[in-house]
Amino acid sequence: MMTTRVLAMSASAGVSRARWAWLAAGAVALLVWPLFVNEPFFLHIATLALLYTIGAASLHLVLRIGHLSLGHAAFLGLGGYTSALLTTALSWPFAAAFIASGLVPAVVALIVGPIVLRLRGVYFVLITFTFGEVVRLVFTEWQSLTGGADGIFRIPPPHALLASKRAYYYFALAMAVACVGVVARILASQTGRFIDAIREGERLAQSSGVPILRFKVMVFAIACGLVGLQGSLLAHFITFVAPGAYAFNESLNLLVMNVIGGMGSLTGPLVGAVFLTALPEFLRGWVELQRFLYGVVLIIVMLFVPGGLVELGRRTIALVREPEGRDA
């Protein structure tokens, strides 16, 4: 399978000192820039990008167990609707609704996971695609609860202090770091070792005693819970939820973040999320053209850079360091 091939290209074993330095520099930059650039437009995009790193990283977890989901936006939507309904209709405090917005998709994943994760390859793709459509239909048709095709409006901010764009940016930053941190921690732990073993050799892992389905369901549920949290954060940020926002296109978006960023490591989806959130916002004037280019880029990446932007960056660095080395 492709995911296996691409993922194997970067065995990210230990975190080197240089990498810590880069991480620290990045953290400082992320913390400091809004103090100098208090521009709502940039803060808005940056917040969106941060929120999407959660969903992209969570889909990366699913890819790591060897499954390609085209229904991940359904779980994003479940989180968004849960949070929206609980805070508006039932006036729950945000914190409780936020937790619920992670739990609901996770529980749904625990229920459907044991069934769908038995399917492999394209069959898993097809069933997740169908599942996504079903969930979207439910959002649309269950009008008494979900407001139908119009969705739910005027979702309050999580807290009065988070009403400004800058405050929400910092909130999103903290949440993204926490959620992506969870993914990184899972992948770096012993659990990650056996996740990779399952993807690269399911039969072999099973004969070493790894309970395949339980592992897959567990990882799937965690991933769906995390993307549900993004759904909540996103809903309170843009203040509405509607079925159209969680349709197939959004699932495709999350997948494409992984593909374009690179499926080899967790860095890929993070880069992909930022790239795919920021780029369209800067190409606002040419909406059709930007979607068109999105498709073109997808094809080009698949044909020429299956490792995505991360691989492209690595190749470039290698080329700069030793221009003669062909196989760097």
Binding site: A197, L204, A205
Partner: peptide, 8 residues
């Protein structure tokens, strides 16, 4: 990876 039962 073979040592799942003892290491995990």
């Amino acid at each position: 990876r073979g040592a799942f039962t003892t290491a995990y």
